[in-house]
Every structure is written in structure tokens, then in C-alpha cells.
Amino acid sequence: TIDDAFRAIERAIQAENEGRYREALKHFLDGGEMIVTAAEKEASQKVRNLLLHKGKEVLEWAEHLAEWILE
């Protein structure tokens, strides 16, 4: 659900702030994927587009974090 997705993102932010970057990455990926999944089930085109945009933002952040971890 969207609530689960945002809880995962909150955990990711907390982990990132505490320097637990790999854990943060996992939570960002989980949250982003949950948002995209919820968007695919959404009946309203406007809400679907907003959710897809937010999911994409979260997944892009996860990608940047992963690249930073690997440096």
C-alpha cells in the first residue's frame, strides 16, 4: 500500500541519516517499487501519473545512492 511505501521511505531516510547506507538503499528501493505497484492499480489517471512520478523519483534517488556506495 501507499502507507507501507511511505513507511519504507521514512525508514530509508532515518537509516541514511544514521549512516546505514545499504539499509537505506534497500528501504528506498522497497518504497519506490511499492509506489509504482500502487500506481499500476490506480483507477484515476491523474493519481496514477502522480504516483508514477513519485515512485520514479524515489527509485532514481536509490540509484544515485547505490552509485555513491560503490565509489
Results as ranks from 00 to 15, higher is better:
residue 19 G to K: 03
residue 21 Y to D: 01
residue 34 M to G: 05
residue 33 E to W: 15
residue 37 T to K: 15
residue 59 L to R: 07
residue 53 H to V: 11
residue 52 L to P: 01
residue 67 E to G: 10
residue 25 L to N: 00
residue 2 I to G: 03
residue 54 K to D: 01
residue 33 E to G: 08
residue 47 V to A: 06
residue 25 L to V: 10
residue 39 A to G: 03
residue 4 D to G: 06
residue 27 H to G: 11
residue 56 K to A: 10
residue 47 V to D: 04
residue 62 A to T: 03
residue 6 F to I: 09
residue 65 L to H: 00
residue 51 L to M: 04
residue 2 I to L: 13
residue 39 A to P: 01
residue 8 A to R: 10
residue 46 K to P: 07
residue 41 K to S: 09
residue 66 A to N: 06
residue 68 W to P: 00
residue 8 A to N: 05
residue 68 W to V: 05
residue 13 I to W: 09
residue 9 I to V: 06
residue 2 I to N: 03
residue 14 Q to P: 00
residue 57 E to T: 09
residue 70 L to S: 10
residue 45 Q to K: 10
residue 49 N to D: 10
residue 5 A to S: 01
residue 65 L to E: 00
residue 22 R to Y: 14
residue 50 L to D: 04
residue 42 E to W: 13
residue 65 L to D: 01
residue 57 E to V: 12
residue 23 E to Q: 06
residue 48 R to P: 00
residue 9 I to H: 00
residue 64 H to M: 12
residue 52 L to Y: 07
residue 12 A to I: 04
residue 42 E to R: 04
residue 18 E to W: 09
residue 61 W to D: 00
residue 54 K to M: 15
residue 24 A to S: 03
residue 5 A to P: 02
residue 65 L to R: 00
residue 48 R to D: 01
residue 11 R to Y: 08
residue 67 E to L: 11
residue 44 S to G: 05
residue 31 G to E: 04
residue 44 S to F: 12
residue 47 V to F: 12
residue 10 E to F: 12
residue 32 G to K: 06
residue 19 G to F: 04
residue 54 K to I: 15
residue 34 M to E: 02
residue 44 S to R: 08
residue 5 A to V: 07
residue 49 N to K: 06
residue 7 R to H: 07
residue 60 E to A: 13
residue 44 S to I: 07
residue 50 L to M: 12
residue 28 F to T: 01
residue 5 A to H: 01
residue 42 E to T: 11
residue 12 A to P: 02
residue 66 A to H: 04
residue 58 V to P: 00
residue 65 L to T: 00
residue 71 E to P: 05
residue 55 G to N: 03
residue 22 R to F: 09
residue 40 E to L: 15
residue 16 E to I: 15
residue 4 D to I: 08
residue 21 Y to M: 05
residue 9 I to T: 00
residue 2 I to A: 04
residue 7 R to N: 06
residue 43 A to H: 12
residue 17 N to V: 12
residue 6 F to P: 00
residue 15 A to C: 12
residue 14 Q to T: 09
residue 9 I to G: 00
residue 53 H to F: 10
residue 59 L to A: 05
residue 16 E to S: 15
residue 10 E to L: 12
residue 61 W to I: 04
residue 42 E to V: 14
residue 60 E to R: 12
residue 40 E to S: 12
residue 22 R to N: 11
residue 22 R to P: 04
residue 51 L to A: 01
residue 39 A to D: 01
residue 36 V to R: 12
residue 14 Q to N: 08
residue 26 K to D: 04
residue 19 G to E: 01
residue 62 A to V: 07
residue 58 V to T: 01
residue 53 H to N: 12
residue 30 D to Y: 14
residue 7 R to S: 06
residue 33 E to L: 14
residue 32 G to F: 15
residue 65 L to C: 04
residue 52 L to A: 05
residue 15 A to D: 02
residue 31 G to Y: 12
residue 53 H to R: 15
residue 51 L to S: 00
residue 45 Q to V: 10
residue 1 T to R: 09
residue 62 A to Y: 04
residue 35 I to E: 02
residue 11 R to P: 00
residue 16 E to Y: 15
residue 37 T to S: 12
residue 3 D to W: 15
residue 70 L to I: 13
residue 48 R to C: 12
residue 58 V to M: 06
residue 52 L to N: 06
residue 70 L to F: 06
residue 67 E to I: 11
residue 10 E to R: 15
residue 32 G to I: 15
residue 30 D to G: 05
residue 40 E to F: 15
residue 5 A to E: 03
residue 43 A to T: 13
residue 30 D to F: 14
residue 5 A to F: 09
residue 53 H to S: 13
residue 26 K to A: 09
residue 8 A to F: 13
residue 14 Q to A: 10
residue 20 R to E: 03
residue 12 A to T: 00
residue 3 D to Q: 15
residue 27 H to I: 05
residue 13 I to T: 03
residue 47 V to T: 08
residue 19 G to M: 04
residue 29 L to D: 00
residue 67 E to T: 09
residue 36 V to W: 07
residue 8 A to M: 15
residue 3 D to E: 13
residue 54 K to P: 01
residue 71 E to L: 11
residue 35 I to M: 14
residue 35 I to A: 02
residue 29 L to N: 03
residue 54 K to A: 10
residue 69 I to N: 02
residue 23 E to M: 05
residue 66 A to S: 06
residue 57 E to L: 14
residue 30 D to E: 14
residue 38 A to L: 15
residue 16 E to Q: 15
residue 11 R to V: 05
residue 36 V to C: 13
residue 9 I to E: 00
residue 65 L to Q: 00
residue 23 E to R: 04
residue 57 E to R: 13
residue 52 L to E: 03
residue 8 A to V: 12
residue 14 Q to E: 08
